[in-house]
């Protein structure tokens, strides 16, 4: 295994790790708020559940990027590529957009969605507005995912 390949694996791990941490924090925060509402009014469970799921997507984007990257370098498939340091750094850098943006956006999306839980609690008919507001944060996670995938697929091996 070359040092280049180690860097590429490190990048893939970071993508899954940081985005996953962000999602865990975001989902956890919304879960706290959602549990507060459900403890008073259990009928609102399904509505708050949608909000709770939203910050979980960043973790999935991180996982997706990690799998694509590991597949690209041949770790998944059983024939690891002999990567140079330059190629290894390229994969590492390709992982950064979703790793960093995934972490931050999931936390902020969690805060927005937790605030949206308050809307659902007081005005359940306006639940959709809370979802839209939280979903806006998702845009930046999607953009970061796109950049990470484009970079991953455009590195010459």
């Amino acid at each position: 295994m070359t040092n280049g390949l180690v860097l590429a694996i490190l990048g893939a791990a970071l993508a899954a790790l940081l985005a996953g941490i962000g999602s865990a924090k975001g989902v956890g925060l919304v879960g706290e708020a959602a549990a507060g509402v459900v403890s008073v009014d259990p009928s609102k469970f399904s509505k708050v559940l949608i909000l709770e799921l939203l910050p979980g997507t960043q973790g999935l984007y991180g996982l997706l990027t990690a799998i694509l990257m590991l597949s690209r370098v041949g770790v998944i498939g059983g024939s690891p590529a002999e990567l140079t340091m330059a190629q290894g750094w390229s994969f590492f850098i390709a992982a950064l957009p979703i790793a960093v943006v995934g972490l931050i956006s999931a936390i902020f999306q969690g805060k927005t969605a937790a605030a949206g839980v308050g809307i659902t609690a007081k005005k359940p008919e306006h639940n959709g507005k809370g979802i839209i507001m939280a979903a806006m944060v998702e845009t930046y996670a999607i953009l970061a995912l796109l950049v990470s995938i484009l970079l991953t697929y455009n590195i010459n091996i």
Binding site: L29, E32, A33, G36, V40, K111, G118, A121
Partner: peptide, 18 residues
């Protein structure tokens, strides 16, 4: 922005309806 008492605030919001 502190996220303290997310659980309590959400529960209180639900109680405010009454």
């Amino acid at each position: 922005m502190s996220t303290k008492y997310a659980n309590a605030v959400a529960a209180i919001r639900a109680m405010e309806n009454s």
